[in-house]
Structures are given as C-alpha cells and as structure tokens.
Write a protein that binds this DNA or RNA. Structure first.
Lengths: 230, 230
DNA sequence: CAGAATCCCATTCGATACTG
DNA sequence: CAGTATCGAATGGGATTCTG
C-alpha cells in the first residue's frame, strides 16, 4: 500500500531510466533498466555498424511496430545510449547513432550471442538481418586467426567490408570495390548457412562468390560456433 | 491478419520459449527470448553462486512478487537454464539450481555489469544483494592480480569464501573458518562502499575486518571500477 | 514456508489511420 | 518517409487467498 506511488514514477513514461523496476544497485540490474526492455538491445544491435534512419532500423527488425520503435529510441536517447542527429542540409535527413557508451555495448551483444549458440535448443532457421550476420562474424571469429584479408559483402543490397588483420576484424559499411573476395547473397540466412552450417557451397543457390575464391574458402574456415553445453 | 494465430502460440503461456517475440535467428535475439523477460536474469544472478530455495531468491530480490518469481522459475526451467531439485529426505526441501548452460551465463552478467559501470549516469546507492556483491568482485578483479589469498565474507548472515590464486578467484558459499582475513558487514552496500568508493575504512561503521588486516587492505586494492565513457 | 489460483488494474502492444 | 494519435486486445504484475 505504501509503496504504490513510488512505482508509478511520474516522469518514467515509456522510458528506460533507472530505478523503475528493480531497485537494485547491482550494475547488471542498472544495465537491464537501460537495455532490458523488449526490443531495446536489438535496436542497439542494428545501430552497431553505424548510424541509421528510422526505416532502416525497421528493415532490420521486421516485426517491431513504429510505435514501439519510437518509444525505444526515445528511451535509449534519454539513457545516453544513442543520439539523434540531423544530417547536413544537402541530405537533411535524421539518423540515430550510438554514443560512445552505446558502442561499448558490443561485447555484451556478443556475449549474448555466444551464450545462445551454446544452448542445447537453438535452431536458427528464422530471418536474419544483414547487420546481425556481420556482427556474428566478429563474434565467432577464431581467436587465433592469422590470415590477413579484406572481404566484401553484399547482402540484400547492403554492402559491408570486413578487414581482418592481426586477429582483429573491424566491419564497416562501404562499397566492395577492391576487396580480395566478395560474397553476394539475397539474404543473410544464406550466408549463415555457408559460414556456420555443414552445407557444401554449391548447395546454396543465390550465394555468389567473386574474386579470389580460394581466399574466400579459407576465410569461411575461420568461423565456427562454440560447442553446445550439456 | 494471416499471422495473428502464429503469435498466439498455445504452449507459450507465461514462458521464455523462443520464437514468441522477435522472429529473429540472431543468437542475441534468441538469448533475449530466454533471459530477456523482466527479472529473469536477476534470478539467474542470485543462483550463480549455488542452488537456493524459493524464499532465499526472494530475499536477494526484495521487490519481486511471488507470482512473478514462480513464473520466471517455470520459464527458465523450460528453457533449460535451471532445474528444480528435491534435496535428499533428511532435509526434504526443494531448491533451484542452474544447469551447466545456466552457469555459462556468468560472463554475460559480468559484461552487463561492466557496461553499466561505464555509464556516465550510474549512481549506486540502492540495496545490493550479497550475491550481487560477490559476483561484482569477480567482475572487477584486476586482470593482473598476482596476490594469492583466501578471504572470508559474512554479509547479512551469509558466508562466502573467495580464493584468489593465479589470477582466478572462485567464490563459494562456505564457512569462513581459517580464511586469511574476514570481512563482516550487515549489508552488501557497506562493502561496496569500501571496495569501490573512496571511503576511508574507519568511516564505515558496521564493517569489521578480522584476521590479517594488512592482507585485507591489499585485497581491497585489487578491485576497481572501469573508467566512465564520455 | 512454497507455491498455485484468482481477481483486477495498469501497462504495453499492434493495427490502423493520420500528418508534415 | 518519419513519425504521431488513437483504440482495443493481450499481457503483466500486485494483492490476496488457499493448500500441502
């Protein structure tokens, strides 16, 4: 009875501000106040490879509604995870981009992915956004990869570039001109089958590899899912 | 219209099973289906240092309701994160314990805590469970700690033991007899102030250090919060 | 104490329509 | 395209009660 009003915090409308749910000083709890709302972390995921417009985010998250996306963007902005920015006059469009702190959430997204992959239950046959796939490559890259290369990706019309050097592999949104090899696929699930499944390359119609095919093969060999937990 | 019925999955009642929310093959999304419901991950956190009874979990999570805890336990059990177990006849009590996969969630909890600590906003003055504090020590331990020691903790009546050796520091629920030093405090927040705040030891009434006080001092020096992000 | 069952209000969400 | 406004339906969750 006495605690009711504290819960219904007036300024907590639709927000990801702290203190609303858990009343717990633990950092984990604080993080969950910020990105623990449904969809929040997936919105962050979509922005992890660079700023995006409202509808580009929706494209990567086909089943989020405009209302929820609007609410999450507002909450994440207030929490300091992202900011909205107007591009300069010639294009005059609004984009959402992660703050410095927001970009620091990548290890967290990776850790979730790694943990999920070890589940005895995870069966991945659903759609996958291009960004989700590119991030998964960063997560599943063999720690001891000694290859250095520059690989292009064209997935559902979006282009990315992965530059592997010294065991590190930054991924950018960039044209693929000049890459050592290029993977082209109409959707990310196809690429996931190639990189993580036991599927032989020719069994994947729609997947095209250009440039140094042998390099592409060796590149694929650098990625593997972790073993399942008992 | 045509998709409505798929959403209202009959067996998805109150559960953390996959496919209900995101329809996304990304591992991060799958993990969020499992532990992304409110409270779920904090329940896992409470169990991270060993099996617990229903009311012990509630003690660590004072503002969760019995109903919600029941639902979360059921969901996490179905998802394979924890199992319920009846102890052998003499005690005949029921406990919840993480599965092997459940225990693998610790890095994930740590990553959330680490990220939260780097937030420009995080101000930790709320209550903290003993388990949350002990886990935070494992998270914030200096990577290059070269000290080897055996430290006991008595927090709000619960006893723990941290054995630091070779940079690794397992924490168990155990009596503190024979530890090199023992910290006693009526609540975890007091210990957090000592380990992470700039508070001089004598400004913390209620905190008692027994055994090798000098060792205890050096031990405290091994823990630090990461720098804030801009 | 450990939970299941019930009741009921508050929040959330998705669909749709609307606006600059 | 980038949202906002509204509404009805589903869900969430607190309080209470009941049982072993």
């Amino acid at each position: 009875m006495k605690l009711r009003k504290e819960t219904a915090n007036p300024d907590a409308s639709a927000g990801a501000l702290h203190g609303r749910w858990y009343r717990d000083a633990c950092g984990t709890a604080f993080a969950l106040e910020v990105i623990g709302e449904r969809w929040s972390l997936l919105v962050v995921r979509e922005l992890m490879l660079g700023a995006l417009r409202f509808s580009d985010i929706r494209a990567g998250l086909p089943s989020i509604s405009a209302k929820v996306l609007t609410e999450r963007l507002a909450g994440l902005e207030r929490a300091g995870v992202l900011r909205r920015r107007r591009l300069d006059p010639p294009v005059a469009v609004q984009v959402y981009e992660l703050t410095e702190w927001g970009y620091l959430a990548e290890p967290l997204i990776q850790e979730l992915g790694r943990w999920a992959a070890r589940s005895p239950l995870h069966d991945p046959t659903l759609p996958l956004s291009p960004v989700a796939f590119m991030l998964s490559l960063r997560t599943m890259l063999d720690d001891h990869a000694s290859l250095d290369c520059d690989i292009g990706f064209v997935i559902a019309g979006q282009t990315f570039r992965a530059r592997l050097a010294g065991g590190d592999m930054p991924v950018t949104r960039e044209p693929v001109d000049g890459a050592g090899a290029v993977f082209r696929a109409p959707d990310a699930a196809l690429l996931a089958a190639r990189f993580y499944g036991d599927v032989p390359p020719r069994a994947l119609p729609g997947l095209v590899i250009e440039g140094d095919v042998d390099l592409a093969q060796r590149f694929v060999g650098l990625f593997a899912l972790p073993p399942k937990a008992g």
